[in-house]
Nucleic acid binder design. Structure first.
Length: 688
RNA sequence: GCCCUCGUAGCUCAGGUGGAUAGAGCGUUGGUUUCCUAAACCAAAGGUCACAGGUUCGAGUCCUGUCGGGGGUACCA
């Protein structure tokens, strides 16, 4: 199935264009540059071709200032289609398009590029409109869509860790941006509140709880119980798997030596033989690694005499935990009671993290919420003859996939595939969304492929389902980010460390000010909190979401280059200018900006043009749900501002007129940075 | 085995459904401050875009193959 989206994403119903580029309202004054240019070119193009929209997409910002501000590249493909020289086609379009108020006379260059240079008078007019608008000139969409965004979704009984950053932060940014543009965005945190981890806690509570600790610090004690039981279960599983793992190593060793001895003359190996041997070597290494992990896991427990004794006394713990989980699901009164007791405490714990991250959800309907809907949906799948039993499990065999989607295990338990189906139906019944977005890591692609196919089987075709996938956070070694001892890194600790480093930088900077420190201890701490949290979020958002990226504190908090800090710094400098200039903002904002603005120097014009691109950047971001488009835009704004700042004195400008004009630019830049960062879930500070 | 992904400067990364001379930050080298926050700015050096074919007026981008990394692949989520 051809897809207009990134290959790693999955969609159905490509015909629903969700956040398509809208034609602007004829009356809407503030508007985006690209939207406007496309509007102007639409009719002339429609006279030449029936694929005008495709051609309109080929209008884009110029790559090189020599080619003006924007360029249109459609004359070449159009020339081919019409069997005319592209330059002639370009000339014909240029003659018909009405851009005189907006652009200098268009130029045709090279094979048929159309170069557009915006009139400064037009920029001034648009900028003035944006300046006087609370929304900075960004229009709301004409056709708002209802879009459910499913992100974050941690298991409530476990501490959140580094793996939750991306889903949480990217999902939140998409949510904020959609809302800002006027869509009805609904965020739903699909909490894991019903799984095996509760079986572990319940088992732990029944056998290992310290009542006093539980009374004083319930969440901490539950966390301890989870970790303890988890460890014992892992230990037991490791013991059970060890002999298989050892056999696998032996087998790999045998295969390798057989292969090597069959190739007698090693200096005259064929390509295939070389390849086979390397592959066998890798297999051996993998097998050894797996075995060593198991050994380490076993050793860790056995080294600790207390743990070892617990492991001996609870030899059936792996099974028992599953039984506790099954009991919970089956309605065992004691387990239900415990679950109801634990759940609010776990949720509270997780909320403290969300508060730190400044993230709120419209809904938090966890897995448990759908429990009663699983049986009926499975029944329906059977009634419709879509599901059948295989090896005792109830399966959906989907034509495009080798392995089936299992909706009920042979022990009768349901899986998350089942819950996901029920969740989609619930959302459709209650919110009637145009789309549901799943911000989930790329490893679950196949799950979503199957899930979406199953949804179609159930007859739901009037909805777009999309997996917004993202890559892995890596450590310096290029492997998933972990502590040196191999443990997963907790999110809370990550935030603390980020704030700690931000604090150090804030202090260093303030202490080294030529005029002496300006910040109180309280201010320093507050700034460090904002800057530290921002650094972490921004580091994540500024990478292409589909890429893996290497996590690096130093770079993140380095406060140079494309970081949140650089943007926040720009913002703070602007606030400083406005304060030092004793500017009455209310008065400034009521000024007739259109007549006050003057963009004579190129840093002024560049900055102004950059500010006008905000709406285009947002559209582009939502086109494929890529927050790094917005971070790149903000970096460009901040860079333009730095150049402007360097070359254009604001407070001591040559004339009152220029001073006012530059103050307007400063204020609008500050508001744009603030608004842009806000859409990424990031705050600003006035001083830093 | 099959499927999905990635390979761009010393390092970390950008590079819409193909468009003009492949970009940024860090690092390196050199320069800028009696001046609104130098956490800044300017300049230079640094690239066979993994490799080989192909499609095209035009390929980092699309197709095929090869090499290398990561991930997934029947009852975890």
């Amino acid at each position: 199935m051809p897809s207009p989206y990134h290959a790693s994403d999955t969609i159905i119903r490509t015909t629903i264009q969700l956040h398509h580029r809208e034609q602007s309202q004829p009356t809407a004054q503030p508007m985006n540059i690209l939207t406007t240019l496309r509007d102007r070119f639409r009719q002339p193009l429609q006279q030449q071709t029936d694929v005008a929209e495709k051609m309109l997409d080929m209008i884009r910002p110029a790559q090189d200032a020599r080619f003006g501000d924007y360029q249109a590249n459609f004359a070449m493909p159009l020339g081919k289609q019409l069997r005319l020289p592209p330059r002639d086609v370009a000339a014909r379009i240029v003659e018909q398009v009405n851009l005189n108020d907006m652009c200098h006379p268009l130029e045709i260059a090279g094979p048929g590029f159309i170069n557009l240079k915006l009139r400064t008078s037009w920029i001034v007019e648009q900028l003035a409109a944006a300046f006087q608008d609370d929304r900075l000139g960004i229009p709301k969409v004409l056709n708002p869509k209802t879009i459910v965004i499913d992100y974050s979704s941690p298991n409530v009984a476990k501490p959140m860790h580094v793996g939750h950053i991306r889903s949480t932060v990217i999902g939140d940014a998409i949510y904020r941006a959609l809302k800002f543009l006027g869509h009805r965005a609904i965020s739903d945190n699909h909490l894991g509140d019903w799984g095996t981890q509760f079986g572990m806690i319940i088992y732990g509570y029944k056998h290992f709880v310290d009542p006093e600790l539980y009374r004083q610090h319930p969440v901490q004690e539950l966390g301890r119980l989870y970790k303890l039981v988890h460890r014992l279960v892992e230990y037991q599983n490791a013991v059970a798997q060890l002999s298989d793992a050892e056999t696998a190593v032996e087998q790999a060793e045998n295969q390798l030596s057989t292969k090597q001895s069959s190739v007698k003359d090693l200096s005259r190996k064929t390509k295939k033989e070389t390849k086979d041997i390397r592959k066998l070597r890798n297999q051996l290494a993998d097998a050894k690694e797996h075995r060593d992990v198991l050994l380490e896991r076993i050793d860790q427990v056995e080294r600790d005499s207390q743990l070892a004794e617990l492991a001996r006394n609870h030899s059936g713990i792996a099974h028992a935990v599953l039984a506790e989980t099954a009991g919970l699901h089956a309605g065992d009164p004691e387990n239900r009671r415990l679950w109801q007791q634990f759940l609010p405490k776990c949720q509270e714990e997780i909320q403290t993290i969300y508060q730190r991250l400044d993230i709120r959800f419209d809904h938090e309907l966890g897995e448990s919420f759908y429990h009663d809907r699983l049986e009926p949906i499975v029944q329906r799948l059977q009634d419709l003859s879509h599901a059948r039993e295989s090896d005792g499990a109830l399966c959906l065999f989907l034509p495009e996939f080798d392995a089936p989607m299992i909706v009920r295990k042979k022990d009768g338990a349901f899986l998350y595939a089942t819950t996901d189906l029920a969740t989609i139906e619930y959302r459709m019944e209650n919110w009637n969304p145009d789309a549901i977005l799943y911000v989930v890591d790329h490893r679950q692609k196949e799950h979503f492929d199957k899930l979406f196919a199953a949804v179609q089987l159930l007859g739901h075709t009037n909805i777009q389902l999309r997996h917004i996938s993202f890559g892995t956070v890596l450590g310096d070694d290029g492997r998933p980010y972990r502590t040196r001892s191999g443990d997963i890194i907790g999110l809370e600790g990550l935030l603390d460390e980020s704030v700690r480093r931000a604090y150090a930088v804030v202090c260093k900077n303030d202490d080294s000010r030529p005029t002496g420190p300006q910040l109180t201890e309280q201010q320093r701490e507050q700034i460090a909190r904002v800057v530290g949290h921002a650094a972490l979020k921004y580091a994540d958002l500024s990478h292409n979401r589909t890429s893996d990226y290497v996590f690096n504190y130093d770079k993140m908090v380095a406060m140079e280059g494309n970081t949140a800090t650089y943007m926040q710094y720009s913002y703070a400098r602007i606030q400083s200018i406005l304060a030092r200039g004793e500017v009455d903002l209310e008065q400034l904002r009521t000024k007739n900006a259109a007549s006050a603005l003057t963009l004579e120097l190129s840093p002024e014009r560049d900055l102004a043009l950059q500010l006008l691109r905000f709406g285009d950047a947002l559209n582009e971001m939502l086109d494929d749900y890529r927050p790094n488009i917005l971070t790149a835009y903000l970096f460009a704004v901040a860079s333009s501002f730095s150049k402007f700042y360097q070359q254009c004195d604001v407070i001591h400008a040559d004339s009152e007129r220029i001073r006012t004009s530059r103050l307007i630019l400063c204020d609008l830049t500050g508001r744009t940075i603030k608004q842009g960062l806000k859409l990424l879930g990031i705050d600003v500070v006035d001083k830093m």
